[in-house]
Design a protein around this nucleic acid. Structure first.
Lengths: 234, 234
DNA sequence: TGTTTTCTCAATCTTTTGATTTAGATTAGT
DNA sequence: ACTAATCTAAATCAAAAGATTGAGAAAACA
């Protein structure tokens, strides 16, 4: 995992100059860390990362601006092995959630003991995720409530269940945006038969056109249940 | 948070009878725990939960069957304060992810020291999330890779960016499944103008009909950017 | 075996959509 | 001020989609 013979290369990004200096001191006190850069600008930081490929980036995030979040995304898009640890004054659930979603490997609050910061750097450099219990709970509450919302959307008496096998096959092709002719060709039935099916689908889903049928299907978790012959359709 | 004067009420679900007995012994050794039930069936377990409203449920999950996952969902749907701790032999990333997504508050591997199980019960009963570092890392890797896939889908040169403001407004209405007449009425322009816009949209999105335009919009993260006048459209 | 559901197809008709061309008015940008 | 982009609109055609009725064959079901 981690080679203890080599110093960990750390880069700091914090728009507060005083804070930046403080962290730098703290880090350099650790004998096996090497601060390869420290900057107040996210954009500048990204350039430094491109140049130095640090092991860990300590990234300050201020609530109002979303530069920090974008920076995290940008860093991860570089496909380096650089791990991002967020350093923030906010334990806002949404912020934690979004930071982790965009690829942060750790999240430390400024109010936490400085030793936590060292812990975080150690953990993420070894490939672990560092998220203190309080933040972890926040994250999961957010995550689970989001998942729940989605699940509910799919719930309710789902009119999709009233469809026959054949109708489902037709609907699947509709959700792929193909016309009558193509559906007929794919299922090897006549175009008028397809029209019949489509009309029945409309009745059952209580819509009047294919666009609304497709919208209904997509928003109600329609899944091509069958060993669909439609697989071959481009 | 937790009232230490009262014993924690724990319910066990594990389809292995021996294992079930073992855990029960382990739990009852703790003086402040009270095992209110132990069963080998997920369905039976759910009934017991309805009856006894335990504080914590220890739920065994075996990989192949997805009864366990469904049970987690069912329990959380009851809207009780009952917390679910998963007990599993598998540290599969997908399984951990899905269990947490469905509302589990903790996840413990059977290979872990039994004291971890007690830790988990304590933590979740206090409202925390319990997820050992190794599993947490697994979870986040899965979570972040999923998030990444979604982000990529929205990436790529997004043809949606080539749309004008008005065209976006029209497209938004298209994604709501309304016809020309309604669009014209909503935007207070003539139907022929709408047709012009729609045709321009088709050109820009490289499609031939509204269904595909809508599909493109939905799959490329189309967001009604404006202070849309379309808000009033049913 | 009788009944119901599902799948198939046709014919007809209306409505909606989509394609194309042309063009005036307004706005934004250089 | 000149130019390019945008928004508006009409007219016309062709094509696709949708509604409706009726009906035979096969499969599922009771």
């Amino acid at each position: 995992m981690r080679d203890f013979n080599k110093k960990l290369r750390v880069l700091l990004i914090d728009d507060n100059a005083n804070h930046l200096r403080g962290i730098k001191e703290l880090i350099t006190l650790e004998t096996n860390y090497n601060v390869v850069g420290a900057t107040r600008s996210a954009n500048l930081g990204i350039n430094l990362i491109k140049k130095y490929h640090p092991d860990v980036v300590l990234m300050d995030i201020n609530m109002p601006e979303k530069d920090g979040l974008q920076a995290i995304q940008a860093i991860n898009k570089m496909e380096l092995s650089t791990k991002v640890v967020v350093l923030s004054g906010y334990d806002d659930a949404d912020l934690v959630y979004r930071a982790m979603k965009l690829g942060a490997r750790g999240y430390v609050l400024k109010t936490m003991a400085s030793v936590k910061l060292i812990d975080a750097i150690e953990d993420v450099s070894e490939g672990k995720i560092y998220l203190p219990a309080a933040l972890s709970t926040r994250f999961f509450e957010y995550f689970q409530s989001a998942a729940r919302k989605e699940a509910n959307k799919v719930e309710g008496e789902n009119l999709l269940n009233t469809l026959t096998v054949r109708e489902s096959e037709v609907l699947e092709l509709l959700t792929q945006g193909v016309n009558y002719k193509t559906i007929a060709g794919t299922l090897i039935i006549s175009e008028t038969t397809v029209k019949t099916h489509v009309n029945n689908i409309f009745q059952k889903l209580q819509v009047n056109d294919r666009t609304n049928a497709v919208l209904y299907a997509l928003s109600h978790g329609f899944k091509p249940s069958n060993k669909s012959a439609a697989m071959t359709a481009a």
